[in-house]
Nucleic acid binder design. Structure first.
Lengths: 230, 230
DNA sequence: CATATAGTCGAACACAATGTTCAATTATAA
DNA sequence: TTATAATTGAACATTGTGTTCGACTATATG
């Protein structure tokens, strides 16, 4: 099933450079890594690097796209499992914390304190893309709209990323589940309010009431787990 | 009352370089400005620049400290006015939006999409410093603490900065008052929940119930204006 | 006004990194 | 086996950084 078009040398070189970047990235901050460092460690020619990537960022970005594919694939599998009758409760925020935790060394190096803006912007864009249709769908039934959907989404994504970086910067002092709970505590009530009152029952509006409207990404529910004030 | 110790040449040179940076910063993004550009426009010697600042960031930071002093001074005046009997309702978030709006060209260039991480980090630290004692004070009366105060503060500051940058990036499509309202709608309920239930009445706990505990910065109230769901 | 002081100038320097080019070499697919 | 495509490595022009130093000049101060 694999597309085997690629010259073996290409994959080899690419892998070498990616590995070099990864091993460098856990040693010092991304900003302080030069193309020179990368090609030194990868042991490839300077011109080779530029034959593949425009610059350092391009290389990193290609790696993130790889990771994103991995993540999306896993989500698809979860979704599939769920559809075949398993009771997998789907919670995208939790999944994100789990995923980040799994790759924490990379994300810490790149999205933490030391980070360049680039990756955070990339993630922001990506997550906003995921969230926007969901939110717009939710808001369709609402009569009032106290806060523009665009802002709500922006806020939610920023909050998630800010919690993520906090978590990473402090070496993940809580488990992903706890972080997801905190995220929910902080944001759920405000999101409710920001989306406006509506036709149906007052609370648990953001929850996926029924299990259709899967959204573009198998994105069932933003606040899937039950919420309760202790 | 002024300390007139400084050599006139020093202030002159400093001003030249600051002006140069400012005028450059509205033309292109901060990242793409070099020390060379600055000294060219300021028309000062290369060595002069390094005699005053360690690097580009140092120069920008010194300017932000200037701005911060300005802001704090204004807040002090407001506070004073309030204490002398005026009915100035004090709302720090609104004040911040007003301040940012006033200096929007600078902040846009520096804290917007194009920004380097640096200034956002600086602001984050600064605002967290303002907020932490307030939050810790609020939480003192609470029995439960669903979310660590540190995270609540982090979340709140991130949210504020994210709204700010959104606002700036889109050329301030709403007035500061509206943005403050949005901030409140999005965050107030979640903050309530995150700080836990307590002894007193259920709602409006974050509001400054009485007007003592001014905090370090004349920081009377985070959500001073009345909150209502429409 | 005189003068020591302290700030500024500007040119030169060493250094580090970028991104391009090209002919020679080598691995690969077919 | 061989045509093709990838890699190499060295050289190069370019841009920016941060430092140094002697010469110059504005300034504060007596």
């Amino acid at each position: 099933m694999k597309e085997k078009k690629e010259d073996r040398r290409i994959s080899r070189t690419r892998k070498l450079m990616l590995d070099a970047l990864m091993s460098l990235i856990v040693e010092r901050s991304y900003e302080n890594i030069t193309v020179q460092d990368i090609i030194d460690r990868a042991d490839v020619g300077r011109s080779t690097f530029y034959a593949h990537y425009r610059d350092k960022d391009d290389l990193l970005l290609s790696w993130f796209e790889h990771l994103r594919n991995l993540f999306e694939q896993q989500q698809q599998e979860l979704r599939a499992a769920r559809e075949t009758g398993r009771d997998t409760e789907f919670n995208i925020v939790l999944e994100l914390f789990l995923h980040t935790g799994r790759h924490h060394r990379l994300y810490k190096a790149v999205a933490g304190k030391q980070s360049g803006e680039m990756i955070l912007r990339y993630l922001h864009r990506y997550l906003s893309g995921l969230l926007t249709p969901v939110m717009e769908d939710v808001v369709r039934n609402r009569k009032t709209r106290p806060v523009p959907v665009e802002i709500t989404v922006h806020h939610l994504v920023s909050s998630l990323l800010s919690l993520m970086t906090w978590w990473l910067d402090r070496n993940m002092p809580y488990p992903p589940e706890k972080m997801e709970e905190i995220f929910r505590t902080l944001n759920r009530p405000g999101i409710e309010a920001s989306l406006g009152n509506d036709i149906k029952n007052e609370s648990r509006q953001v929850m996926a009431d029924d299990r259709n409207d899967a959204g573009p990404m198998g994105f069932y529910s933003l606040f899937a787990a039950p919420f309760c004030c202790p």
